[in-house]
Design a protein around this nucleic acid. Structure first.
Length: 226
DNA sequence: ACTACGATCTACT
DNA sequence: GTAGATCGTAGTG
């Protein structure tokens, strides 16, 4: 607890909040730039969080995998059309919350799903919330991450920095190291390469064992080259 | 009102 | 590898 978030923050460790303008762009531009940034959740005086290592972009009406596909605004996806830098949280499979960050100017739909973080702050509490799993499994998937951070529907529609959730600048991985692939778990739209992660990072989710080519372990279908 | 279906995870074979 | 959990949202009657 001596080296927790608040201590570092008051010590002026250099964490600066990401401003809203950062999110006021296309999700597929914002998503890879979020890798390396610091996601923090403060609940009941306790701080948890970590470094973003895996993300997916969800676009608007033309993205078949997006909640904003064709249908227009509904009660659930309304937040995706709202102000950039807002948390979009939804509940699925009867068990899991998903945390997204809204992109695009207000009125235009788009968001980035945060799929995994490398634990940095409040590991003990996150582990507790995750019923004692090992560190590597604390937040290596979107549902796990939300549970570890205590994210639920009450965070939906709240602007970053104004509620429990905040995002800070961190050390971005070298661009040439970032890998991309198809998105995980969709019934359609999985052919689009809108997932980005830090290859080799132990806190990246296993993703789906590919429908297109059975896969054990992590496979990046594409890696940026110089 | 009722039904189907998840941007997933865990447990068990 | 595969099934079951478990409930909010959306679409239909």
């Amino acid at each position: 607890m001596t080296s927790d978030w608040n201590t570092q923050r008051t010590a002026g460790a250099g964490y600066t909040p990401v401003d809203v303008g950062f999110f006021e762009r296309a999700p597929d531009v914002v998503a890879p730039e979020l890798l390396g940034m610091i996601l923090v959740s403060r609940r009941g005086g306790a701080t948890t969080g970590g470094r973003i290592v895996e993300v997916e972009a969800y676009l608007g009406a033309h993205d078949p995998g997006s909640h904003a596909a064709t249908k227009g605004i509904t009660k659930r996806n309304a937040v995706m059309y709202g102000p950039p830098g807002t948390a979009y949280v939804y509940f699925t499979y009867g068990n899991h919350h998903m945390l997204n960050l809204v992109c695009e100017p207000e009125g235009s739909a788009g968001a980035v799903l945060i799929r995994a973080i490398e634990p940095l702050f409040g590991l003990e509490l996150m582990t507790q919330r995750r019923r004692g799993v090992r560190e590597r499994d604390v937040a290596n998937g979107p549902g796990k991450l939300a549970q570890a951070l205590g994210v639920d529907l009450s965070d939906n529609g709240v602007l970053l920095g104004e509620g429990r959730l905040s995002v800070y600048h961190g050390e971005q991985p070298n661009r040439s190291v970032v890998a991309s692939s198809g998105r995980v778990g969709l019934s359609s739209g999985h052919e689009l390469e809108l997932r980005w992660f830090v290859p080799g990072n132990p806190y990246v989710s296993r993703g789906r064992l590919g429908p297109t080519g059975r896969g054990r372990g992590q496979r990046s279908s594409k890696e940026a080259s110089t």
